[in-house]
Amino acid sequence: MHSNRIFNSPEPFHLAGTGERASTALLLVHGFTGSPSEFRRGAYYWQDLGYSVHAIQLPGHGTSPEEMRKTTWKDWMRHVILSYDRLQQAGYASIFLVGHSMGGLLSLLLAIKRPVSGVISLGTPIYVTTYKAAFARVVHPFVPYVTKKPRRLAQTLDEACAYDRTPVKCVVCLQKLVRIVKRKLPLVAAPMLILQGMKDRTVKPHSAAYIYKRCSSSQKRLHYMSESSHSILLDKEREDVYRRVDQFVQHIVAEKEVQEQPDPISGLIEVMT
């Protein structure tokens, strides 16, 4: 039935929903040097449940490190805003942001700028594990790229289509984005689901607790995935991640529907008057 599904492609994609959930859109925002491919497996899962799924490709990503080097965090943010606005214009009843890593940072910023239904933050960096990032601002004029280390975890699916080299100039942009989000987190009031892998070797796990404590959301959930790395969408607990996203979205949509139902007593008063 699903033999035509693609799992290794950096291209952006849109999967149409079906039934009652088709009016709920999930806007998927991938990570730094990554691509929409990291979301494909989860996107098919959510589409099978009826959701409309839209995975964007950030400028400079999914092409080449040389192309990425020409972009900044402002280009990435501009694209996320434009993508959200298009979904809103298309008439979806609810739009949830699902951001992985840097995509989580961009999603949090968008939640300040637009009335999103909810934000799902997956391995979003506030504190990173590598000391090398601190030198990026100094060395980027002289060292254009650094080569990434190969993956260490065999159980992680190799479907992210990420670059094997990182433009150092873009690391500086990422650091600036982290600082901006840290400062503005109290302005985030949308419902939040925060998932963080305990075996993440890129983002320090207490980043998730920082986001949870600092955001102003009245509805927020934090869960640590004990067996997951930074590749939380493709690691061995991925099905649990997809399921938790669905449960969170269902809960928020159901609450919204209850709030939007007219009060029968006030309706009766209107009729009587």
Rank of each mutant, 00 (worst) to 15 (best):
R114L: 02
A254C: 01
L27R: 07
E260I: 01
G123P: 08
K70Y: 05
C170A: 13
P36Y: 09
G123S: 09
Y131I: 13
H61D: 12
R69E: 12
V271A: 10
A208K: 01
Q89C: 07
S35M: 11
I180R: 11
D200H: 02
C161M: 14
L233H: 06
R183F: 13
M102E: 07
L82N: 14
R221V: 15
I81Q: 13
L193V: 01
A189N: 09
L185K: 04
M1E: 14
E20Y: 06
T24K: 06
V168K: 01
S117M: 02
S266E: 12
S52E: 11
T24A: 07
Y127V: 14
P167C: 08
R243Y: 13
T273W: 08
E159W: 11
T124M: 09
T147S: 07
E20H: 11
M77D: 10
I194R: 02
L58K: 04
V139Q: 00
K176S: 15
P167M: 06
H223Q: 13
V53Y: 06
K74M: 13
V178A: 01
D85G: 05
A154E: 11
R69V: 06
P144F: 05
Y127I: 13
V178W: 00
R86G: 13
M225Y: 11
P59E: 12
V143Q: 10
K213V: 00
L122S: 04
